[in-house]
Amino acid sequence: MNEYLKKVQSIVWKDIIIELRMKEMLNTMLIFSILVILISSFAFGTFNQEMTQSIAPGVLWIAFTFAGMLGLGRSFISEKDRGCLQGMMLAPTDWSAIYIGKTIANLIFMSIMEILTLIVFVVLFNFGQIITSPLKFVLITIVGTFGFVSVGTLLSAVSVNTKTREMLLPVLLFPVIVPIIIGAVEATLSIITANGQFWGWVRILVAYDIIFFTVSALSFNYVIEG
């Protein structure tokens, strides 16, 4: 088991080193998420406090998920181009290690993007003032992002095999993550308004995370085989 985790760790490390050098994913994701926030603020006009409160969660999660989608789309393309995925598959490890390694790496990239986006969001939307509990917000972001990345990593591996490569990913991924988007937005809203079912949503998202992470890890073998 320890050996298994070490292999997962080297896969994560490899992705981080490459990303730090090439900055293919992070830059694009970050610029895109900030653009989403900017465009929303133009599209909805200058906000008054009340309007900000009701719109902020939606804008934030659209920025997170759309930018995340962009990054996930690239996740397996770099692995396929030089046969690197096959290289990893040839190593004496269960292939689920590849899935878990890639998921953790994507989770890290998403989190970095989310933190930087949030800084912009705090400045532009006065988000720090309207949120009642930062800790709760961190919790729901982690839980929501994890579910998103779990399914997203699997479906990214599916979509690189299609004729259009990453083009199909949003079509496959968005309808499946409807519960994540609803849950994360509602929970964020409940933190702002300080009422609503925050813990209920956390519970639903945790259930989603467990179910989809397990199913994805189990079915990943079938996706990459061949």
Binding site: L154, V178, I204, F212, V215, V223
Partner: peptide, 22 residues
């Protein structure tokens, strides 16, 4: 690949229904 998506797809339905309802 479509079999994998066929499984993922159906699992998401009840959770979607639950969160949409709430």
């Amino acid at each position: 690949l479509s079999a994998v998506y066929g499984i993922i797809a159906f699992i998401s339905v009840p959770i979607s229904y639950l969160s949409i309802t709430i």
